[in-house]
Every structure is written in C-alpha cells, then in structure tokens.
Simulated scan of single mutants.
Amino acid sequence: MSEEFTEQELHNLAMNVVGKDLEKQGFEFMSVNSQLKKDPQFVCLKNKKLHFIVVKAVLYPENPQKYNVTYMETMREHALKFKARTYYAGVGIANAINYEAPIEKGEKYIINYNGIIEI
C-alpha cells in the first residue's frame, strides 16, 4: 500500500518545478519560503527589479492557471509597497496512470506547468 503525498510535500514539489524555471530565466533568489500558506514563496531579483512569486500546487481536475483574483490583488498591493512585481505560479499535479487517483509516493505523476503569470 503506497502512501499519499501530504499537502506540504505537494507544495514542495511545485516549489521545485517553479524554482528550476526561475533559475533558467535568470532570477536571483533573495528569499525562499516553502511553508504552506506563507506568501510569497520566492522573492527574487532580475534586472535589478524585485519580484514576488506565489506558488500553488493544484490537484487535477482543478486548472493550475486559475488563481484567486482577490487574494492575488491583495498580494500585488503588498508587493507595490516594495516596488515589486507580482506573479502567480500554478503547478498542476496528477497521478500519471489515473488522473482521478491520489498522488502516491513511488508512483509516477504528471506536472502541468506553463510558467509564471504576472498579476
């Protein structure tokens, strides 16, 4: 019997996906926070500009591109105090064999990530 990923483990998985993407794009990490419900997860510098990135692990059938507009606007207001740009990074995660099944350790899963979205 396999063990399901916890919410924190799924969040960490999403953080790794986004972190690698940000690295490839040349973002420099100022701070990283992988604690659940503590936003933003990444505070980065790129071209001498500050960027706040909120990461969310999203389970199938939810759409990883869809975010809570009200919450992200609040986040953007906060970022503006620091003259920072705000981004949302939704990472969809599903069981590779059966999308409806839970994501379990030791089993294959699929990632649906299309990059960061500026707010």
Results as ranks from 00 to 15, higher is better:
residue 87 Y to H: 08
residue 72 M to C: 06
residue 83 K to G: 09
residue 14 A to W: 03
residue 65 Q to M: 11
residue 105 K to C: 10
residue 29 F to N: 08
residue 53 I to R: 02
residue 100 E to C: 02
residue 65 Q to T: 11
residue 20 K to V: 10
residue 88 Y to T: 08
residue 56 K to Q: 15
residue 10 L to V: 08
residue 95 N to I: 08
residue 25 Q to R: 15
residue 118 E to S: 05
residue 90 G to K: 08
residue 105 K to N: 09
residue 54 V to A: 09
residue 5 F to L: 15
residue 11 H to G: 04
residue 109 Y to I: 08
residue 20 K to P: 00
residue 75 M to A: 06
residue 71 Y to P: 00
residue 37 K to G: 00
residue 115 G to R: 03
residue 11 H to E: 07
residue 49 K to F: 03
residue 3 E to Y: 10
residue 22 L to A: 04
residue 100 E to F: 06
residue 25 Q to G: 02
residue 50 L to E: 05
residue 94 A to K: 15
residue 44 C to P: 03
residue 106 G to F: 10
residue 112 N to A: 13
residue 1 M to E: 11
residue 58 V to C: 09
residue 69 V to Y: 06
residue 1 M to H: 11
residue 38 K to F: 06
residue 104 E to D: 03
residue 59 L to D: 01
residue 58 V to E: 02
residue 54 V to P: 01
residue 47 N to H: 07
residue 64 P to M: 08
residue 67 Y to H: 13
residue 46 K to W: 07
residue 24 K to S: 14
residue 56 K to Y: 05
residue 83 K to C: 09
residue 101 A to Y: 10
residue 76 R to P: 01
residue 52 F to C: 03
residue 7 E to Q: 14
residue 5 F to Y: 15
residue 108 K to A: 13
residue 70 T to D: 08
residue 58 V to L: 03
residue 20 K to D: 13
residue 113 Y to I: 06
residue 62 E to W: 02
residue 75 M to C: 07
residue 31 S to Y: 10
residue 50 L to S: 06
residue 15 M to D: 01
residue 12 N to I: 03
residue 45 L to Q: 07
residue 47 N to Y: 05
residue 39 D to M: 05
residue 46 K to T: 06
residue 31 S to G: 01
residue 97 I to T: 12
residue 77 E to H: 05
residue 112 N to H: 10
residue 84 A to V: 04
residue 34 S to R: 15
residue 107 E to K: 15
residue 114 N to E: 12
residue 52 F to Y: 15
residue 105 K to M: 12
residue 84 A to R: 03
residue 82 F to R: 10
residue 72 M to F: 13
residue 90 G to C: 07
residue 107 E to V: 04
residue 97 I to Y: 11
residue 97 I to S: 11
residue 49 K to N: 12
residue 19 G to F: 07
residue 97 I to Q: 12
residue 91 V to K: 04
residue 21 D to K: 10
residue 19 G to N: 12
residue 35 Q to V: 14
residue 86 T to I: 05
residue 86 T to K: 03
residue 24 K to G: 04
residue 1 M to N: 10
residue 75 M to T: 02
residue 92 G to A: 07
residue 13 L to R: 06
residue 101 A to K: 11
residue 101 A to T: 02
residue 56 K to R: 15
residue 80 L to R: 14
residue 21 D to Q: 08
residue 55 V to W: 01
residue 51 H to K: 09
residue 12 N to F: 05
